[in-house]
Design a protein around this nucleic acid. Structure first.
Lengths: 335, 335
DNA sequence: TTGAAAGCGATACCAC
DNA sequence: GTGGTATCGCTTTCAA
């Protein structure tokens, strides 16, 4: 049996209320008593029952991290967000629960809200983000959306500046003299997909380059989809000389496809990925990529979530952290 | 305010006990009543309070994943374990809490045990594994150790067969004609480190090859340590023609170091890594590596943990899953 | 400064 | 089948 405050009370011949107050740092308990209680607690190896404390206090010391978009597997991308978030939660004595969003996501979120197992939620991806956000707002569960920009006010989010980063990447290619640039996205990524295409086109237009819709492709989520898309692009009568991919794994498939087609990268075709995953370092040539500060995003989001949990009257946070372009040899070649 | 069983009881003019029993699927409640209760629950959007349920039932539906060895950051290695574990927990309606093991690990584990916030623990790494295991046994918290072999009986673990895999990798090199093979480990990995060296030596001895202790190195945990170690090895008067590294990032540093030293891989020096991380696919040449079935390990461990939680009289599981060698061009060159 | 007692929201035992 | 009620372990008034 676990030791309870009753045990301490009996042990010291005190009442449970005094013990509780001592333990919780109230100042209406004699310093000497307080000492004895703490000592007894240590001696008896007492730790409060989470369930009892939570029930009585009507709140927990847990926050949730919900995730799952095209997959509910944690990859390097999600892991970096989680690491940042966990580090901050840890310091504030909060524990993080993992909520993979499989099955009926809305029902799942409803349950999470009503069970009051967590005080707040970090929301990454999820196919029904709009509905999810509405639900959480209605249920008044504090939450911060990760990696998505939200126009409607009242929603907290922390994201990388994808618009700026995509523009920068596109301009980088334009400056290198490319005029036919392809975009390889993934429509399964929803808004992210369309938004980035918009940024891509904007950069082209600002440089007075022709926008060729034939050069915007969407790859499926299955392995090798990017490889096929790249092959299609290269078979065009007027193929692109540069490709911007929505994430590194896709970019790497494009790279492989180009090389297998007998092309030299970046001489024949330049390639840019996104997210600066570890695998982007080791390709041949190393991949130029957009680096979103994911751990930082996770940290900032968790920081704000904890603040919001403590004071729900605070205004929502709308944070867009700069993403930088990491230029490697897949665009500029060997020096 | 959240809706409670009292609300349902009042709404249906029933007692809370009946409502509770209906909800929990007892069969001593009239089918019709049961129907009405479920309908009302759905209508009122009722979900039981996790804290109240946990307190009364004296158990939760949570399990913990504790991690942190040389770092408390989740990388691809840990993520793959987590993904397997979470998938199984999910199906059994268990939620997973993340417990990064920073600071005083033993105290942290003690708290976890006493707070009864989770029913069981998956244990990955941690510097004080022996002490941790002792503690958990004493506290009777079900747990399964990941990725470590435990000699003492009574401890459940699921691991990859590192011994077999290291032997296989070594033999692979021997079959290719290598006689001077180096091992690049990381002493910060503790037992893992020494065990693998033992397996490595055993394979050498079985092939009647000389065991040269000069060829066994330990790299630090800082970035670039592997690079330096490889350089040292290559500067030996009688340098190795093959290197076995304890994990892919280290192997990749060795690879880079060899290439920078003007050597051809695998012609001048062959390299093998471990863990089959994504980055091992994309190096040039692609890295031969040991593939431990990490998701499978996570799954098996969680499956056993849940079983053990239900019935603590069951014998511990001692599972060693085969790891296979994935042969790529860093050892066999282009075909 | 301390103790008695109510109550958080469930579950489960015991009558009826 | 159903209802009353003790109880889980803790926090928090309210009196003393």
């Amino acid at each position: 049996m676990a030791v309870t405050i009753w045990d301490i009370a009996k042990y010291l011949d005190l009442s449970v209320s005094t013990v509780s107050r001592a333990l919780n740092g109230y100042n209406d308990v004699a310093p000497k008593t307080r000492e004895r209680v703490f000592e007894a607690a240590r001696e008896l190896n007492y730790y409060p029952s989470a369930a009892a404390r939570d029930l009585r206090r009507r709140h927990t010391s847990r926050v949730g991290f919900s995730y799952g978009f095209t997959t509910t597997d944690i990859g390097e991308f999600a892991a970096r967000l989680i690491n940042g978030a966990v580090a901050v939660a840890e310091k504030a004595d909060y524990n993080v629960m993992l909520y993979p969003l499989t099955g009926n996501q809305i029902e799942k979120l409803t349950r999470i809200c009503q069970e009051r197992e967590v005080e707040g939620l970090l929301l990454m991806g999820g196919e029904y983000l709009t509905e999810s956000v509405e639900l959480l707002q209605k249920k008044q569960l504090p939450f911060v959306v990760l990696n998505r920009w939200f126009d409607q006010s009242g929603v907290s989010f922390v994201t990388a500046d994808h618009h700026q980063a995509t523009m920068e990447a596109t301009r980088h290619l334009i400056e290198l003299g490319h005029t036919r640039i392809a975009y390889v996205g993934q429509s399964a990524l929803g808004k992210l997909h369309s938004e980035r295409i918009a940024s891509f086109w904007q950069a082209l237009r600002e440089a007075n380059l022709e926008v060729d819709e034939m050069l915007v492709m969407s790859a499926g989520t299955d392995l090798g989809a990017g490889y096929q898309v790249m092959r299609t692009l290269l078979e065009l009568s007027n193929p692109p000389t540069a490709v911007l991919a929505i994430h590194d794994p896709l970019a790497i498939e494009c790279l492989q496809s180009a090389i297998d087609a007998g092309l030299k990268v970046p001489d024949d075709v330049a390639i840019i990925g996104s997210d600066n995953l570890r695998e982007s370092h080791t390709t041949d040539p190393p991949l130029t990529t957009i680096h979103p500060p994911l751990a930082e995003i996770g940290r900032a989001a968790m920081e704000h979530l904890l603040v919001q949990i403590k004071d729900d009257t605070l205004p929502p946070i709308r944070l867009k952290l700069p993403a930088r372009l990491i230029v490697r040899q897949s665009t500029i070649g060997k020096r």
